[in-house]
Protein backbone atom coordinates (compact mmCIF):
# COMPACT_ATOMS: atom_id res chain seq x y z
CA UNK A 1 0.00 0.00 0.00
CA UNK A 2 2.72 2.48 0.90
CA UNK A 3 4.67 1.76 -2.26
CA UNK A 4 1.51 2.18 -4.31
CA UNK A 5 0.83 5.49 -2.62
CA UNK A 6 4.39 6.61 -3.27
CA UNK A 7 4.15 5.59 -6.90
CA UNK A 8 0.85 7.40 -7.20
CA UNK A 9 2.38 10.52 -5.73
CA UNK A 10 5.34 10.40 -8.09
CA UNK A 11 2.97 9.89 -10.97
CA UNK A 12 0.91 12.88 -9.97
CA UNK A 13 4.03 15.03 -9.60
CA UNK A 14 5.23 14.04 -13.06
CA UNK A 15 1.89 14.94 -14.57
CA UNK A 16 1.49 18.13 -12.60
CA UNK A 17 1.35 20.31 -15.70
CA UNK A 18 -1.20 18.16 -17.45
CA UNK A 19 -3.43 17.83 -14.43
CA UNK A 20 -7.07 18.50 -15.24
CA UNK A 21 -8.59 21.15 -13.02
CA UNK A 22 -12.10 21.09 -14.40
CA UNK A 23 -15.05 19.81 -12.46
CA UNK A 24 -14.85 16.58 -14.43
CA UNK A 25 -11.82 15.60 -12.38
CA UNK A 26 -14.17 15.15 -9.42
CA UNK A 27 -16.55 12.86 -11.28
CA UNK A 28 -14.74 9.76 -10.02
CA UNK A 29 -14.35 10.81 -6.40
CA UNK A 30 -16.17 8.50 -3.97
CA UNK A 31 -19.65 9.42 -2.86
CA UNK A 32 -19.04 10.76 0.63
CA UNK A 33 -22.72 10.37 1.48
CA UNK A 34 -22.74 6.63 0.73
CA UNK A 35 -23.28 4.39 3.75
CA UNK A 36 -21.03 1.78 2.14
CA UNK A 37 -18.15 4.26 2.00
CA UNK A 38 -18.77 5.17 5.62
CA UNK A 39 -18.70 1.54 6.74
CA UNK A 40 -15.56 0.80 4.74
CA UNK A 41 -13.91 3.86 6.24
CA UNK A 42 -14.85 2.77 9.78
CA UNK A 43 -13.53 -0.73 9.16
CA UNK A 44 -10.24 0.53 7.73
CA UNK A 45 -9.83 3.01 10.56
CA UNK A 46 -10.36 0.37 13.24
CA UNK A 47 -7.92 -1.94 11.48
CA UNK A 48 -5.39 0.87 11.41
CA UNK A 49 -5.85 1.64 15.10
CA UNK A 50 -5.55 -2.00 16.13
CA UNK A 51 -2.00 -2.13 14.78
CA UNK A 52 -0.85 -0.12 17.79
CA UNK A 53 -0.27 -2.48 20.70
CA UNK A 54 0.19 0.40 23.14
CA UNK A 55 -2.72 2.61 24.15
CA UNK A 56 -3.31 4.90 21.20
CA UNK A 57 -2.85 8.61 21.81
CA UNK A 58 -5.50 10.98 20.57
CA UNK A 59 -3.08 12.55 18.12
CA UNK A 60 -2.35 9.13 16.63
CA UNK A 61 -6.07 8.47 16.30
CA UNK A 62 -6.42 11.79 14.51
CA UNK A 63 -3.51 11.07 12.20
CA UNK A 64 -4.86 7.61 11.38
CA UNK A 65 -8.33 9.03 10.77
CA UNK A 66 -6.92 11.54 8.29
CA UNK A 67 -4.70 9.03 6.51
CA UNK A 68 -7.53 6.54 6.09
CA UNK A 69 -9.76 9.36 4.84
CA UNK A 70 -7.16 10.38 2.28
CA UNK A 71 -6.71 6.75 1.24
CA UNK A 72 -10.47 6.47 0.75
CA UNK A 73 -10.24 9.42 -1.62
CA UNK A 74 -7.54 7.44 -3.45
CA UNK A 75 -5.38 10.46 -4.09
CA UNK A 76 -7.79 11.91 -6.60
CA UNK A 77 -7.79 15.30 -4.91
CA UNK A 78 -5.01 17.60 -3.91
CA UNK A 79 -5.89 17.56 -0.22
CA UNK A 80 -5.81 13.75 -0.08
CA UNK A 81 -2.45 13.56 -1.84
CA UNK A 82 -1.07 16.13 0.59
CA UNK A 83 -2.14 14.04 3.59
CA UNK A 84 -0.80 10.80 2.12
CA UNK A 85 2.57 12.32 1.27
CA UNK A 86 3.13 13.92 4.67
CA UNK A 87 0.77 12.96 7.50
CA UNK A 88 2.67 15.01 10.07
CA UNK A 89 2.13 18.18 8.06
CA UNK A 90 -1.33 18.58 9.55
CA UNK A 91 -0.06 19.06 13.07
CA UNK A 92 2.72 21.39 12.03
CA UNK A 93 0.21 23.45 10.13
CA UNK A 94 -2.15 23.48 13.07
CA UNK A 95 0.48 24.60 15.58
CA UNK A 96 1.77 27.20 13.18
CA UNK A 97 -1.74 28.53 12.73
CA UNK A 98 -2.22 28.96 16.46
CA UNK A 99 0.77 31.28 16.75
CA UNK A 100 -0.63 33.89 14.40
CA UNK A 101 -4.36 33.72 14.89
CA UNK A 102 -6.51 35.26 12.22
CA UNK A 103 -9.60 37.20 13.23
CA UNK A 104 -12.06 38.11 10.51
CA UNK A 105 -13.29 41.65 10.23
CA UNK A 106 -17.00 41.01 10.43
CA UNK A 107 -17.86 44.65 9.87
CA UNK A 108 -16.04 44.86 6.58
CA UNK A 109 -18.00 46.97 4.14
CA UNK A 110 -19.55 45.22 1.17
CA UNK A 111 -19.23 47.24 -2.01
CA UNK A 112 -20.69 44.82 -4.54
CA UNK A 113 -22.37 41.39 -4.47
CA UNK A 114 -20.47 40.38 -7.57
CA UNK A 115 -17.24 38.44 -7.39
CA UNK A 116 -14.13 40.50 -7.96
CA UNK A 117 -10.81 38.92 -7.21
CA UNK A 118 -9.31 42.33 -6.62
CA UNK A 119 -11.34 42.72 -3.42
CA UNK A 120 -8.97 42.40 -0.44
CA UNK A 121 -11.66 40.67 1.64
CA UNK A 122 -12.05 37.80 -0.81
CA UNK A 123 -8.31 37.38 -1.15
CA UNK A 124 -7.71 37.32 2.58
CA UNK A 125 -10.45 34.77 3.18
CA UNK A 126 -9.22 32.66 0.29
CA UNK A 127 -5.77 32.62 1.87
CA UNK A 128 -7.24 31.52 5.20
CA UNK A 129 -9.23 28.82 3.44
CA UNK A 130 -6.11 27.62 1.65
CA UNK A 131 -4.39 27.10 5.00
CA UNK A 132 -7.28 25.02 6.34
CA UNK A 133 -7.25 22.52 3.47
CA UNK A 134 -4.15 20.31 3.23
CA UNK A 135 -1.98 21.10 0.23
CA UNK A 136 -4.02 24.09 -0.92
CA UNK A 137 -1.94 27.06 0.20
CA UNK A 138 -0.77 27.92 -3.28
CA UNK A 139 -3.51 26.76 -5.63
CA UNK A 140 -5.60 28.84 -7.98
CA UNK A 141 -8.87 30.24 -6.72
CA UNK A 142 -11.14 27.93 -8.79
CA UNK A 143 -9.07 24.94 -7.73
CA UNK A 144 -9.35 26.02 -4.10
CA UNK A 145 -13.13 26.13 -4.35
CA UNK A 146 -13.27 22.66 -5.88
CA UNK A 147 -11.00 21.20 -3.21
CA UNK A 148 -13.01 22.90 -0.47
CA UNK A 149 -16.25 21.31 -1.66
CA UNK A 150 -14.80 17.81 -1.76
CA UNK A 151 -12.93 18.27 1.52
CA UNK A 152 -16.07 19.36 3.36
CA UNK A 153 -18.01 16.33 2.12
CA UNK A 154 -15.15 14.05 3.16
CA UNK A 155 -14.94 15.63 6.63
CA UNK A 156 -18.68 15.22 7.13
CA UNK A 157 -18.40 11.51 6.29
CA UNK A 158 -15.42 11.22 8.64
CA UNK A 159 -17.43 12.72 11.51
CA UNK A 160 -20.38 10.39 10.87
CA UNK A 161 -18.13 7.32 10.72
CA UNK A 162 -16.13 8.18 13.83
CA UNK A 163 -19.32 8.86 15.78
CA UNK A 164 -20.76 5.48 14.79
CA UNK A 165 -17.47 3.77 15.66
CA UNK A 166 -17.30 5.44 19.07
CA UNK A 167 -20.88 4.44 19.81
CA UNK A 168 -20.11 0.82 18.96
CA UNK A 169 -17.02 0.81 21.15
CA UNK A 170 -18.89 2.47 24.00
CA UNK A 171 -21.58 -0.22 24.04
CA UNK A 172 -18.98 -2.98 24.30
CA UNK A 173 -19.55 -4.65 20.93
CA UNK A 174 -23.07 -6.03 21.27
CA UNK A 175 -24.80 -8.02 18.51
CA UNK A 176 -25.12 -6.01 15.28
CA UNK A 177 -27.13 -2.87 15.93
CA UNK A 178 -28.30 -1.15 12.74
CA UNK A 179 -29.48 1.88 14.70
CA UNK A 180 -25.94 2.59 15.83
CA UNK A 181 -24.81 2.96 12.25
CA UNK A 182 -27.36 5.58 11.28
Amino acid sequence: MDSLSLHSNLHSVNNKRRQITHQNSFALTPSWTSLTEQRLYSSKLLHSLRRNSNPTAALEVRASADRVLAATAKGRTRWSRAILSNPICRWKQRHHKKVKKYSANKFMKKTTPEIRRSLPAVQKKARVLGKLIPGCRKVSFPKLLEEAGDYISALEMQVRAMKALADLLATGAPPPAPIGLS
Binding site: L49, K125, L129, M162, L169
Partner: peptide, 30 residues
Protein backbone atom coordinates in the same frame (compact mmCIF):
# COMPACT_ATOMS: atom_id res chain seq x y z
CA UNK B 1 -18.27 35.63 -2.21
CA UNK B 2 -16.55 36.98 0.87
CA UNK B 3 -19.38 35.70 3.07
CA UNK B 4 -19.30 32.26 1.45
CA UNK B 5 -15.56 31.99 2.00
CA UNK B 6 -15.88 33.15 5.61
CA UNK B 7 -18.58 30.61 6.42
CA UNK B 8 -16.64 27.90 4.59
CA UNK B 9 -13.64 28.57 6.83
CA UNK B 10 -15.82 28.54 9.93
CA UNK B 11 -17.49 25.28 8.93
CA UNK B 12 -14.19 23.51 8.18
CA UNK B 13 -12.84 24.65 11.54
CA UNK B 14 -15.92 23.26 13.31
CA UNK B 15 -15.56 19.94 11.47
CA UNK B 16 -11.89 19.85 12.49
CA UNK B 17 -12.89 20.39 16.12
CA UNK B 18 -15.44 17.59 15.88
CA UNK B 19 -12.83 15.19 14.51
CA UNK B 20 -10.45 16.22 17.31
CA UNK B 21 -13.11 15.54 19.94
CA UNK B 22 -13.98 12.20 18.37
CA UNK B 23 -10.28 11.28 18.26
CA UNK B 24 -10.06 11.91 22.01
CA UNK B 25 -13.16 9.81 22.60
CA UNK B 26 -11.96 6.94 20.41
CA UNK B 27 -8.56 7.01 22.10
CA UNK B 28 -10.16 6.56 25.51
CA UNK B 29 -12.56 3.88 24.30
CA UNK B 30 -9.79 1.90 22.66
Amino acid sequence: ASKVLQETCNYIKSLHREVDDLSDRLSQLL
